[in-house]
């Protein structure tokens, strides 16, 4: 075990994947200079571990700023023998390539009767909570959950970032990885040896018996903090991190809610048609009779993200808003009015 940051764990997974298979290449804007911190050893080109030095320009490719062309080329390369990891930097830029994601990446295998396999990973950072204004603060994973043919991961811990990325690279289907910048600097002990976290398997971040909180991406640590808070008042909260949104580990969610009878879903994406909406519907459809209280979603409101730090703060689930939702489903009185979006 060694202490790794979330970002360091992604870098480690990319290095392992590059070492394990010559067909793995990394393409994206500014990957040669390691601008986003996942393709290098340290601060300088001469540092041990610099990807360009290790793997050369044939496998580490800076691209022009041409997201549609990049995503399409990565798809074509994946269909013909490579296993590209595409670094799209900010997830807001995925929209530039929407046609390629929806019409080519997601559909080609199906339309062509299974002739194509599409072993490609598209990584992007969700830059929310960092006062960058509306153009860089998106959390667009639910839009892509609406496109059959894509697999979607949203790791919340360094260990999952490493293990899920290895599975994503090894998958013969296209995987979109949504990485929250708020998690970049979180650290934990991570196995420095190779390991794989399977796609489609949720993680129980914390066990409990009274309430299930299903939390996504940066809402996971907030949910765990809320759970610890409520534990002091004798409420036992289970926190489930799906980790993979497509395929979703339905059984893990249903099993937990069947046990606790109460569900709060927390995520940083918009409310309408979000992952939380999907998970709530799943539970209501499948195990309505187990529910002892209405399901509560804690999400970002259907609003654009304002720049001013004082305004942006209230937009995403926090430990306070998640705790308030938990109090409601277990019928505890509210502590204080919580201004944020519930």
């Amino acid at each position: 075990m060694t202490v790794m940051s979330y970002l360091g764990a992604i870098g480690a997974a990319q290095r392992e994947a590059m070492d394990a298979d010559e067909r793995v290449i990394i393409i994206g804007e500014d990957v040669e200079a390691n601008v986003y911190g996942t393709t290098g050893g340290g601060k300088s080109r001469s540092d041990k571990g610099d990807f360009l030095q290790r793997y050369g320009k044939n496998r580490i490719r800076n691209t022009p700023i041409s997201e549609e062309g990049i995503v399409g080329a990565a798809a074509g390369a994946a269909m013909t023998g490579l296993r590209p990891i595409v670094d799209l930097s900010y997830s807001s830029f995925l929209y530039m390539a929407m046609d390629q994601f929806v019409n080519q990446v997601a559909k080609n295998r199906y339309m062509f009767g299974g002739q194509a396999s599409m072993p490609v990973v598209f990584r992007s950072a969700m830059f929310y909570g960092l006062n960058t204004g509306a153009h860089h603060s998106d959390r667009p994973y639910p839009m892509f959950m609406n496109v059959p043919g894509l697999k979607i991961i949203a790791p919340a811990t360094p260990a999952d970032a490493k293990g899920l990325l290895r599975s994503a690279v090894d998958s013969d289907d296209p995987v979109l990885s949504f990485e929250a910048c708020l998690l970049w600097s979180t650290k934990e002990d991570v196995d420095e040896n190779e390991f794989w976290v399977p796609l489609g398997v949720a993680r129980t971040a914390r066990e409990g018996t009274d309430v299930t909180v299903v939390a996504i991406s940066s809402s996971v640590p907030e949910a765990v903090a809320a759970a610890e808070e409520l534990a002091k008042e004798g409420v036992s909260v289970e926190v489930i991190d799906p980790r993979t949104l497509v395929p979703l580990d339905r059984n893990a969610i249903l099993r937990s809610v069947a046990k606790t009878g109460r569900l709060v879903v927390a995520e940083p994406a918009h409310r309408t048609c979000g992952a939380a909406a999907e998970i709530s519907a799943l539970v209501a459809e499948e195990i309505f009779d187990s529910l002892k209280a209405p399901i509560i979603r804690v999400t970002a409101p259907d609003m654009q993200i304002p720049f001013s730090p004082s305004l942006e703060k209230q937009m995403y689930p926090t430990r306070a808003t998640i705790a308030a939702a938990i109090r409601r489903v277990v019928d505890l009185p509210a502590l204080q009015p919580v201004a944020a979006a519930v």
Partner: peptide
């Protein structure tokens, strides 16, 4: 126009491989 980059990607894999 959508399939143009697909062929371009195939050319990229020919180049890399």
């Amino acid at each position: 126009g959508s399939s143009i980059p697909i062929a371009n990607g195939a050319a990229l894999s020919s180049k890399v491989l």
